[in-house]
Design a protein around this nucleic acid. Sequence first.
DNA 1: GTGCAAACAATCGTATACAATTTAGCGCTT
DNA 2: AAGCGCTAAATTGTATACGATTGTTTGCAC
Lengths: 237, 237
Amino acid sequence: MDYSAEGLLAPNGSPETGAQQIRDAIRDAIVERRLAPGTKLSESDVGGLFNVSRTLARAALQALSYEGLVSVEKNRGAFVAYPSPDEARQIFAARRLVEPGILKSAAERITPVQLEQLKQLLVEEGRLVGERGQSARRAEIKASGDFHLMLASISGNLIMQRFMEELVARSSLVIALYGQSSVSSCGHSEHGDIIAALEHKDVDAACHLMLHHIAHIEADLDLRERKGFGLKEAFER
Amino acid sequence: MDYSAEGLLAPNGSPETGAQQIRDAIRDAIVERRLAPGTKLSESDVGGLFNVSRTLARAALQALSYEGLVSVEKNRGAFVAYPSPDEARQIFAARRLVEPGILKSAAERITPVQLEQLKQLLVEEGRLVGERGQSARRAEIKASGDFHLMLASISGNLIMQRFMEELVARSSLVIALYGQSSVSSCGHSEHGDIIAALEHKDVDAACHLMLHHIAHIEADLDLRERKGFGLKEAFER
DNA sequence: GTGCAAACAATCGTATACAATTTAGCGCTT
DNA sequence: AAGCGCTAAATTGTATACGATTGTTTGCAC
Protein backbone atom coordinates (compact mmCIF):
# COMPACT_ATOMS: atom_id res chain seq x y z
CA MET A 1 0.00 0.00 0.00
CA ASP A 2 2.32 2.65 1.22
CA TYR A 3 6.02 2.17 0.71
CA SER A 4 6.98 5.76 1.36
CA ALA A 5 10.37 5.90 3.03
CA GLU A 6 9.47 3.84 6.04
CA GLY A 7 11.22 4.53 9.30
CA LEU A 8 14.89 3.83 8.90
CA LEU A 9 15.77 3.94 12.53
CA ALA A 10 12.43 4.56 14.16
CA PRO A 11 11.36 1.42 15.95
CA ASN A 12 8.07 2.90 16.99
CA GLY A 13 6.86 6.38 17.71
CA SER A 14 4.88 6.65 20.88
CA PRO A 15 1.86 8.69 19.78
CA GLU A 16 1.15 8.08 16.12
CA THR A 17 3.09 6.54 13.38
CA GLY A 18 2.12 8.55 10.35
CA ALA A 19 1.79 12.09 11.56
CA GLN A 20 5.12 11.86 13.35
CA GLN A 21 6.94 11.00 10.16
CA ILE A 22 5.31 13.77 8.20
CA ARG A 23 6.06 16.25 10.94
CA ASP A 24 9.72 15.27 10.96
CA ALA A 25 9.98 15.43 7.20
CA ILE A 26 8.49 18.92 7.05
CA ARG A 27 10.58 20.06 9.98
CA ASP A 28 13.74 18.89 8.29
CA ALA A 29 12.71 20.71 5.15
CA ILE A 30 12.17 23.90 7.12
CA VAL A 31 15.35 23.63 9.15
CA GLU A 32 17.42 22.86 6.09
CA ARG A 33 15.80 25.83 4.37
CA ARG A 34 14.26 23.97 1.50
CA LEU A 35 10.96 25.52 2.55
CA ALA A 36 11.12 29.29 2.70
CA PRO A 37 9.43 31.23 5.50
CA GLY A 38 5.94 32.25 4.53
CA THR A 39 5.35 29.30 2.23
CA LYS A 40 1.79 28.12 2.38
CA LEU A 41 1.33 24.56 3.54
CA SER A 42 -2.13 23.53 2.45
CA GLU A 43 -3.51 20.47 4.17
CA SER A 44 -4.50 18.90 0.88
CA ASP A 45 -1.10 19.48 -0.66
CA VAL A 46 0.76 18.11 2.32
CA GLY A 47 -1.51 15.11 2.47
CA GLY A 48 -1.16 14.48 -1.23
CA LEU A 49 2.57 14.80 -1.05
CA PHE A 50 2.85 12.07 1.56
CA ASN A 51 -0.04 9.98 0.29
CA VAL A 52 -2.11 10.34 3.39
CA SER A 53 -5.39 12.01 4.17
CA ARG A 54 -5.87 15.53 5.36
CA THR A 55 -6.33 14.20 8.88
CA LEU A 56 -2.69 13.24 9.24
CA ALA A 57 -1.45 16.27 7.36
CA ARG A 58 -3.39 18.46 9.72
CA ALA A 59 -2.02 16.68 12.77
CA ALA A 60 1.52 17.17 11.52
CA LEU A 61 0.95 20.86 10.86
CA GLN A 62 -0.57 21.26 14.28
CA ALA A 63 2.45 19.66 15.86
CA LEU A 64 4.76 22.00 13.98
CA SER A 65 2.74 24.97 15.10
CA TYR A 66 3.36 23.97 18.72
CA GLU A 67 7.06 24.10 17.97
CA GLY A 68 6.74 27.53 16.45
CA LEU A 69 7.89 26.40 13.03
CA VAL A 70 4.51 26.78 11.39
CA SER A 71 1.87 29.36 12.06
CA VAL A 72 -1.69 28.36 11.41
CA GLU A 73 -4.29 31.07 10.95
CA LYS A 74 -7.86 30.23 11.58
CA ASN A 75 -9.79 29.44 8.42
CA ARG A 76 -6.81 30.53 6.35
CA GLY A 77 -4.32 27.74 6.56
CA ALA A 78 -0.81 26.95 7.69
CA PHE A 79 2.35 28.75 6.65
CA VAL A 80 6.00 28.23 7.34
CA ALA A 81 6.63 30.60 10.21
CA TYR A 82 7.83 34.06 9.34
CA PRO A 83 9.38 35.25 12.60
CA SER A 84 9.28 38.97 13.16
CA PRO A 85 12.45 40.78 14.20
CA ASP A 86 11.08 40.90 17.70
CA GLU A 87 10.45 37.17 17.76
CA ALA A 88 13.97 36.66 16.45
CA ARG A 89 15.38 38.67 19.33
CA GLN A 90 13.34 36.64 21.79
CA ILE A 91 14.60 33.40 20.34
CA PHE A 92 18.20 34.43 20.82
CA ALA A 93 17.48 35.91 24.21
CA ALA A 94 16.09 32.53 25.20
CA ARG A 95 19.20 30.82 23.94
CA ARG A 96 21.44 33.16 25.89
CA LEU A 97 19.32 32.35 28.88
CA VAL A 98 19.39 28.58 28.72
CA GLU A 99 22.52 27.51 26.88
CA PRO A 100 25.01 28.46 29.58
CA GLY A 101 22.99 26.48 32.09
CA ILE A 102 22.81 23.51 29.76
CA LEU A 103 26.52 23.74 29.19
CA LYS A 104 27.18 23.80 32.89
CA SER A 105 25.03 20.76 33.43
CA ALA A 106 26.65 19.00 30.50
CA ALA A 107 30.12 19.73 31.85
CA GLU A 108 29.25 17.99 35.09
CA ARG A 109 28.03 14.85 33.45
CA ILE A 110 30.08 14.47 30.31
CA THR A 111 31.91 11.20 29.85
CA PRO A 112 35.08 10.65 27.83
CA VAL A 113 33.16 8.82 25.13
CA GLN A 114 30.70 11.67 24.82
CA LEU A 115 33.55 14.13 24.55
CA GLU A 116 34.90 12.03 21.72
CA GLN A 117 31.53 12.06 20.01
CA LEU A 118 31.45 15.82 20.26
CA LYS A 119 34.84 16.06 18.65
CA GLN A 120 33.77 13.74 15.89
CA LEU A 121 30.76 15.91 15.25
CA LEU A 122 33.09 18.86 14.98
CA VAL A 123 35.27 17.07 12.46
CA GLU A 124 32.24 16.18 10.38
CA GLU A 125 31.11 19.76 10.52
CA GLY A 126 34.50 20.98 9.41
CA ARG A 127 34.48 18.61 6.49
CA LEU A 128 31.14 19.98 5.31
CA VAL A 129 32.33 23.56 5.53
CA GLY A 130 34.98 22.75 2.95
CA GLU A 131 32.62 21.09 0.50
CA ARG A 132 30.63 22.82 -2.18
CA GLY A 133 27.05 22.51 -3.24
CA GLN A 134 23.58 22.93 -1.86
CA SER A 135 23.55 19.51 -0.32
CA ALA A 136 26.71 20.11 1.66
CA ARG A 137 25.42 23.45 2.82
CA ARG A 138 22.24 21.88 4.14
CA ALA A 139 24.20 19.20 5.91
CA GLU A 140 26.39 21.91 7.41
CA ILE A 141 23.38 23.76 8.75
CA LYS A 142 22.15 20.58 10.35
CA ALA A 143 25.52 19.62 11.79
CA SER A 144 25.95 23.08 13.23
CA GLY A 145 22.66 22.76 15.07
CA ASP A 146 23.46 19.23 16.12
CA PHE A 147 26.41 20.51 18.12
CA HIS A 148 24.14 22.53 20.37
CA LEU A 149 21.64 19.69 20.49
CA MET A 150 24.25 17.20 21.55
CA LEU A 151 25.28 19.42 24.43
CA ALA A 152 21.67 19.47 25.53
CA SER A 153 21.56 15.71 25.21
CA ILE A 154 24.67 15.34 27.34
CA SER A 155 23.12 17.53 29.99
CA GLY A 156 20.80 14.61 30.64
CA ASN A 157 17.68 16.71 30.85
CA LEU A 158 15.09 15.63 28.31
CA ILE A 159 12.99 18.72 28.87
CA MET A 160 15.83 21.09 28.14
CA GLN A 161 16.78 18.92 25.20
CA ARG A 162 13.34 19.28 23.65
CA PHE A 163 13.37 22.98 24.32
CA MET A 164 16.73 23.36 22.64
CA GLU A 165 15.46 21.46 19.63
CA GLU A 166 12.77 24.04 19.26
CA LEU A 167 15.16 26.94 19.70
CA VAL A 168 17.70 25.59 17.23
CA ALA A 169 15.03 24.94 14.63
CA ARG A 170 13.54 28.37 15.01
CA SER A 171 17.00 29.92 14.89
CA SER A 172 17.45 28.37 11.49
CA LEU A 173 14.31 30.14 10.32
CA VAL A 174 15.56 33.44 11.69
CA ILE A 175 18.92 33.06 10.00
CA ALA A 176 17.22 32.20 6.73
CA LEU A 177 15.23 35.40 6.97
CA TYR A 178 17.64 37.89 8.45
CA GLY A 179 21.09 36.40 7.96
CA GLN A 180 23.45 38.58 5.97
CA SER A 181 26.62 36.68 5.26
CA SER A 182 25.88 33.59 3.23
CA VAL A 183 27.74 31.31 5.61
CA SER A 184 26.00 32.53 8.71
CA SER A 185 25.18 29.07 9.93
CA CYS A 186 27.46 28.94 12.93
CA GLY A 187 31.01 29.84 13.70
CA HIS A 188 32.71 26.52 13.30
CA SER A 189 35.86 27.43 15.16
CA GLU A 190 33.85 28.66 18.13
CA HIS A 191 32.39 25.23 18.56
CA GLY A 192 35.90 23.88 18.79
CA ASP A 193 36.84 26.45 21.40
CA ILE A 194 33.89 25.42 23.54
CA ILE A 195 34.85 21.78 23.33
CA ALA A 196 38.40 22.63 24.31
CA ALA A 197 37.19 24.53 27.34
CA LEU A 198 34.98 21.60 28.25
CA GLU A 199 37.89 19.24 28.00
CA HIS A 200 39.89 21.38 30.41
CA LYS A 201 36.97 21.37 32.81
CA ASP A 202 36.86 25.13 32.59
CA VAL A 203 33.13 25.59 32.83
CA ASP A 204 33.18 29.33 33.22
CA ALA A 205 35.26 29.78 30.12
CA ALA A 206 32.99 27.44 28.19
CA CYS A 207 29.92 29.42 29.23
CA HIS A 208 31.59 32.65 28.29
CA LEU A 209 32.53 31.25 24.92
CA MET A 210 28.99 30.05 24.40
CA LEU A 211 27.55 33.47 25.10
CA HIS A 212 30.06 34.99 22.76
CA HIS A 213 29.17 32.42 20.14
CA ILE A 214 25.45 33.19 20.34
CA ALA A 215 26.14 36.90 20.20
CA HIS A 216 28.27 36.29 17.16
CA ILE A 217 25.46 34.56 15.34
CA GLU A 218 23.00 37.26 16.30
CA ALA A 219 25.38 40.00 15.20
CA ASP A 220 25.21 38.67 11.66
CA LEU A 221 21.48 39.37 11.48
CA ASP A 222 19.85 42.44 10.05
CA LEU A 223 16.83 42.73 12.26
CA ARG A 224 15.41 45.94 10.91
CA GLU A 225 11.73 45.85 10.15
CA ARG A 226 11.09 45.23 6.49
CA LYS A 227 8.48 47.45 4.99
CA GLY A 228 7.39 44.96 2.41
CA PHE A 229 9.78 46.05 -0.28
CA GLY A 230 9.96 42.45 -1.41
CA LEU A 231 6.65 41.80 -3.11
CA LYS A 232 6.75 38.11 -2.42
CA GLU A 233 6.94 38.62 1.32
CA ALA A 234 4.29 41.30 1.15
CA PHE A 235 1.89 38.89 -0.46
CA GLU A 236 2.47 35.75 1.47
CA ARG A 237 2.28 37.67 4.68
CA MET B 1 -6.88 43.75 3.39
CA ASP B 2 -3.93 42.72 5.39
CA TYR B 3 -2.86 44.79 8.32
CA SER B 4 0.46 43.04 8.58
CA ALA B 5 2.79 43.29 11.53
CA GLU B 6 0.16 41.36 13.37
CA GLY B 7 0.06 41.58 17.12
CA LEU B 8 2.60 39.47 18.89
CA LEU B 9 0.17 38.77 21.63
CA ALA B 10 -2.88 38.93 19.45
CA PRO B 11 -6.14 37.72 20.96
CA ASN B 12 -6.52 35.83 17.73
CA GLY B 13 -7.24 32.17 18.41
CA SER B 14 -4.43 30.84 16.31
CA PRO B 15 -5.20 27.25 15.39
CA GLU B 16 -8.75 26.25 16.15
CA THR B 17 -11.44 27.48 18.37
CA GLY B 18 -12.93 24.31 19.75
CA ALA B 19 -9.89 22.20 20.46
CA GLN B 20 -8.20 25.12 22.18
CA GLN B 21 -11.02 25.47 24.66
CA ILE B 22 -11.08 21.78 25.45
CA ARG B 23 -7.35 21.74 25.88
CA ASP B 24 -7.47 24.64 28.32
CA ALA B 25 -10.30 23.09 30.26
CA ILE B 26 -8.51 19.79 30.67
CA ARG B 27 -5.24 21.51 31.49
CA ASP B 28 -6.90 23.51 34.23
CA ALA B 29 -8.42 20.35 35.60
CA ILE B 30 -5.02 18.70 35.68
CA VAL B 31 -3.18 21.67 37.17
CA GLU B 32 -5.82 22.15 39.83
CA ARG B 33 -5.58 18.44 40.58
CA ARG B 34 -9.15 17.58 39.87
CA LEU B 35 -7.80 14.98 37.48
CA ALA B 36 -5.38 12.61 39.17
CA PRO B 37 -2.21 11.44 37.43
CA GLY B 38 -2.82 8.21 35.56
CA THR B 39 -6.48 8.91 34.87
CA LYS B 40 -7.52 7.58 31.51
CA LEU B 41 -8.76 10.15 29.06
CA SER B 42 -10.61 8.28 26.39
CA GLU B 43 -11.24 10.21 23.21
CA SER B 44 -14.89 9.24 23.20
CA ASP B 45 -15.39 10.29 26.80
CA VAL B 46 -13.66 13.61 26.36
CA GLY B 47 -15.60 14.28 23.20
CA GLY B 48 -18.87 13.34 24.85
CA LEU B 49 -18.11 15.48 27.85
CA PHE B 50 -17.66 18.59 25.73
CA ASN B 51 -20.24 17.65 23.14
CA VAL B 52 -17.81 17.47 20.28
CA SER B 53 -16.56 14.68 18.09
CA ARG B 54 -13.57 12.54 18.71
CA THR B 55 -11.66 14.64 16.21
CA LEU B 56 -11.53 17.66 18.46
CA ALA B 57 -11.04 15.61 21.58
CA ARG B 58 -8.09 13.96 19.95
CA ALA B 59 -6.60 17.28 18.90
CA ALA B 60 -6.88 18.58 22.45
CA LEU B 61 -5.25 15.48 23.89
CA GLN B 62 -2.48 15.70 21.35
CA ALA B 63 -1.83 19.29 22.31
CA LEU B 64 -1.65 18.33 25.96
CA SER B 65 0.77 15.57 25.17
CA TYR B 66 3.10 18.13 23.57
CA GLU B 67 3.04 19.99 26.86
CA GLY B 68 3.85 16.85 28.76
CA LEU B 69 0.62 16.88 30.73
CA VAL B 70 -0.84 13.76 29.17
CA SER B 71 0.91 10.78 27.74
CA VAL B 72 -0.64 9.01 24.80
CA GLU B 73 0.27 5.41 24.19
CA LYS B 74 -0.13 4.02 20.77
CA ASN B 75 -3.36 2.09 20.32
CA ARG B 76 -4.03 2.33 24.03
CA GLY B 77 -5.18 5.84 24.69
CA ALA B 78 -4.32 8.98 26.58
CA PHE B 79 -3.69 9.26 30.30
CA VAL B 80 -2.99 12.12 32.63
CA ALA B 81 0.78 12.11 32.84
CA TYR B 82 2.34 10.15 35.64
CA PRO B 83 5.81 11.66 35.89
CA SER B 84 8.50 9.32 37.14
CA PRO B 85 10.79 10.48 39.93
CA ASP B 86 13.44 11.03 37.32
CA GLU B 87 11.15 13.19 35.22
CA ALA B 88 10.26 15.11 38.34
CA ARG B 89 13.91 15.81 39.01
CA GLN B 90 14.38 16.98 35.44
CA ILE B 91 11.43 19.33 35.70
CA PHE B 92 12.87 21.00 38.76
CA ALA B 93 16.35 20.99 37.30
CA ALA B 94 14.92 22.84 34.31
CA ARG B 95 13.28 25.35 36.61
CA ARG B 96 16.51 25.95 38.47
CA LEU B 97 18.12 26.47 35.13
CA VAL B 98 15.73 29.00 33.67
CA GLU B 99 14.00 30.83 36.49
CA PRO B 100 17.03 32.82 37.64
CA GLY B 101 17.55 33.99 34.09
CA ILE B 102 13.91 34.91 33.73
CA LEU B 103 14.05 36.76 37.01
CA LYS B 104 17.10 38.67 35.89
CA SER B 105 15.40 39.67 32.67
CA ALA B 106 12.24 40.60 34.52
CA ALA B 107 14.16 42.75 36.95
CA GLU B 108 15.56 44.78 34.09
CA ARG B 109 12.21 45.48 32.53
CA ILE B 110 9.78 45.63 35.41
CA THR B 111 7.65 48.76 35.68
CA PRO B 112 6.13 50.19 38.85
CA VAL B 113 2.67 49.13 37.78
CA GLN B 114 3.85 45.58 37.19
CA LEU B 115 5.47 45.53 40.59
CA GLU B 116 2.16 46.57 42.03
CA GLN B 117 0.39 43.79 40.15
CA LEU B 118 2.86 41.31 41.58
CA LYS B 119 2.16 42.52 45.07
CA GLN B 120 -1.54 42.28 44.51
CA LEU B 121 -1.12 38.72 43.32
CA LEU B 122 0.74 38.03 46.53
CA VAL B 123 -2.05 39.49 48.63
CA GLU B 124 -4.60 37.40 46.79
CA GLU B 125 -2.47 34.34 47.34
CA GLY B 126 -2.16 35.10 51.03
CA ARG B 127 -5.89 35.46 51.33
CA LEU B 128 -6.41 32.02 49.82
CA VAL B 129 -3.92 30.41 52.17
CA GLY B 130 -6.12 31.44 55.06
CA GLU B 131 -9.32 30.09 53.60
CA ARG B 132 -10.61 26.60 53.94
CA GLY B 133 -12.09 24.18 51.48
CA GLN B 134 -11.22 22.40 48.28
CA SER B 135 -12.10 25.36 46.13
CA ALA B 136 -9.77 27.70 47.99
CA ARG B 137 -7.00 25.15 47.86
CA ARG B 138 -7.33 24.86 44.10
CA ALA B 139 -7.29 28.60 43.71
CA GLU B 140 -4.22 28.72 45.89
CA ILE B 141 -2.42 26.23 43.71
CA LYS B 142 -3.25 28.30 40.68
CA ALA B 143 -2.26 31.59 42.29
CA SER B 144 1.03 30.13 43.43
CA GLY B 145 1.87 29.15 39.89
CA ASP B 146 0.66 32.46 38.55
CA PHE B 147 3.37 34.19 40.53
CA HIS B 148 6.07 32.42 38.58
CA LEU B 149 4.14 32.88 35.36
CA MET B 150 3.80 36.57 35.88
CA LEU B 151 7.53 36.92 36.35
CA ALA B 152 7.98 35.18 33.02
CA SER B 153 5.45 37.51 31.49
CA ILE B 154 7.29 40.54 32.83
CA SER B 155 10.51 39.25 31.34
CA GLY B 156 8.95 40.09 28.00
CA ASN B 157 9.99 36.86 26.34
CA LEU B 158 7.00 34.97 24.97
CA ILE B 159 9.05 31.86 24.38
CA MET B 160 10.27 31.66 27.95
CA GLN B 161 6.76 32.44 29.09
CA ARG B 162 5.33 29.49 27.22
CA PHE B 163 8.12 27.28 28.52
CA MET B 164 7.45 28.34 32.09
CA GLU B 165 3.76 27.59 31.62
CA GLU B 166 4.71 24.06 30.78
CA LEU B 167 7.10 23.75 33.69
CA VAL B 168 4.66 25.14 36.21
CA ALA B 169 1.88 22.87 35.00
CA ARG B 170 4.07 19.82 35.14
CA SER B 171 5.34 20.83 38.57
CA SER B 172 1.78 20.72 39.78
CA LEU B 173 1.54 17.14 38.61
CA VAL B 174 4.76 16.24 40.38
CA ILE B 175 3.61 17.82 43.61
CA ALA B 176 0.31 16.00 43.38
CA LEU B 177 2.19 12.73 43.08
CA TYR B 178 5.15 13.13 45.39
CA GLY B 179 4.31 16.04 47.67
CA GLN B 180 4.34 15.15 51.35
CA SER B 181 3.07 18.06 53.38
CA SER B 182 -0.48 18.86 52.47
CA VAL B 183 0.28 22.51 51.83
CA SER B 184 3.16 21.83 49.53
CA SER B 185 1.96 24.20 46.87
CA CYS B 186 4.53 26.93 47.28
CA GLY B 187 6.10 28.80 50.10
CA HIS B 188 4.00 31.89 50.22
CA SER B 189 6.42 33.99 52.23
CA GLU B 190 9.24 33.20 49.84
CA HIS B 191 7.32 34.81 47.05
CA GLY B 192 7.13 37.93 49.14
CA ASP B 193 10.86 37.87 49.78
CA ILE B 194 11.55 37.69 46.08
CA ILE B 195 9.31 40.64 45.38
CA ALA B 196 11.04 42.60 48.09
CA ALA B 197 14.43 41.88 46.58
CA LEU B 198 13.10 42.90 43.20
CA GLU B 199 11.83 46.15 44.61
CA HIS B 200 15.26 46.93 45.99
CA LYS B 201 16.80 46.17 42.60
CA ASP B 202 18.88 43.49 44.22
CA VAL B 203 18.86 41.03 41.36
CA ASP B 204 21.45 38.69 42.82
CA ALA B 205 19.53 38.33 46.04
CA ALA B 206 16.32 37.73 44.13
CA CYS B 207 17.94 34.98 42.09
CA HIS B 208 19.36 33.43 45.19
CA LEU B 209 15.98 33.51 46.86
CA MET B 210 14.40 31.97 43.80
CA LEU B 211 16.84 29.08 43.80
CA HIS B 212 16.22 28.59 47.48
CA HIS B 213 12.50 28.69 46.85
CA ILE B 214 12.65 26.01 44.16
CA ALA B 215 14.88 23.87 46.35
CA HIS B 216 12.38 24.27 49.13
CA ILE B 217 9.55 22.99 46.98
CA GLU B 218 11.62 20.09 45.79
CA ALA B 219 12.71 19.23 49.32
CA ASP B 220 9.10 18.56 50.20
CA LEU B 221 8.91 15.76 47.66
CA ASP B 222 9.45 12.11 48.32
CA LEU B 223 11.02 11.03 45.10
CA ARG B 224 11.82 7.47 45.98
CA GLU B 225 10.71 4.93 43.46
CA ARG B 226 7.48 3.34 44.51
CA LYS B 227 7.55 -0.41 44.35
CA GLY B 228 3.82 -0.68 44.06
CA PHE B 229 3.16 -0.91 47.75
CA GLY B 230 0.06 1.16 47.19
CA LEU B 231 -2.26 -0.98 45.19
CA LYS B 232 -4.04 1.96 43.71
CA GLU B 233 -0.89 3.33 42.12
CA ALA B 234 0.09 -0.14 41.00
CA PHE B 235 -3.15 -0.43 39.07
CA GLU B 236 -3.47 2.95 37.45
CA ARG B 237 -0.05 2.85 35.99
C1' DG C 1 -8.97 -27.38 37.52
C1' DT C 2 -5.53 -25.40 34.60
C1' DG C 3 -3.79 -23.68 30.18
C1' DC C 4 -4.21 -22.31 25.62
C1' DA C 5 -6.87 -20.47 21.77
C1' DA C 6 -10.24 -18.26 19.32
C1' DA C 7 -13.95 -15.03 19.27
C1' DC C 8 -15.77 -10.69 21.41
C1' DA C 9 -15.56 -6.02 22.90
C1' DA C 10 -13.49 -1.67 23.28
C1' DT C 11 -10.57 1.84 21.69
C1' DC C 12 -7.53 3.92 18.69
C1' DG C 13 -5.72 5.13 13.65
C1' DT C 14 -7.00 6.86 9.37
C1' DA C 15 -9.96 8.10 5.63
C1' DT C 16 -13.87 10.18 3.79
C1' DA C 17 -17.93 13.26 3.85
C1' DC C 18 -20.31 17.34 4.95
C1' DA C 19 -20.67 22.23 6.80
C1' DA C 20 -18.72 26.82 7.41
C1' DT C 21 -15.70 30.29 6.09
C1' DT C 22 -12.81 32.69 3.13
C1' DT C 23 -11.28 34.11 -1.42
C1' DA C 24 -11.67 34.99 -6.23
C1' DG C 25 -14.19 35.90 -10.32
C1' DC C 26 -17.79 38.00 -12.81
C1' DG C 27 -21.31 40.97 -14.12
C1' DC C 28 -23.85 44.94 -13.10
C1' DT C 29 -24.42 49.77 -11.95
C1' DT C 30 -22.99 54.53 -11.98
C1' DA D 1 -13.81 52.46 -16.91
C1' DA D 2 -13.94 52.12 -11.88
C1' DG D 3 -16.47 50.46 -8.00
C1' DC D 4 -19.70 47.55 -5.82
C1' DG D 5 -22.25 43.27 -4.82
C1' DC D 6 -23.23 38.68 -5.74
C1' DT D 7 -22.21 33.96 -6.91
C1' DA D 8 -19.00 30.08 -7.21
C1' DA D 9 -14.70 27.78 -6.24
C1' DA D 10 -11.40 26.56 -2.99
C1' DT D 11 -9.88 25.68 1.65
C1' DT D 12 -10.42 24.93 6.32
C1' DG D 13 -13.39 23.16 10.53
C1' DT D 14 -15.87 19.33 12.27
C1' DA D 15 -18.28 15.03 12.23
C1' DT D 16 -18.93 10.37 11.00
C1' DA D 17 -17.51 5.83 9.19
C1' DC D 18 -14.56 2.03 8.61
C1' DG D 19 -10.40 -0.75 9.50
C1' DA D 20 -6.70 -2.12 12.77
C1' DT D 21 -4.82 -3.09 17.17
C1' DT D 22 -5.20 -4.27 21.88
C1' DG D 23 -7.28 -6.46 25.94
C1' DT D 24 -10.68 -9.53 27.78
C1' DT D 25 -13.59 -13.33 28.08
C1' DT D 26 -15.39 -17.60 26.89
C1' DG D 27 -14.95 -22.31 25.60
C1' DC D 28 -12.57 -26.46 24.84
C1' DA D 29 -8.93 -29.77 25.39
C1' DC D 30 -5.97 -31.99 28.54
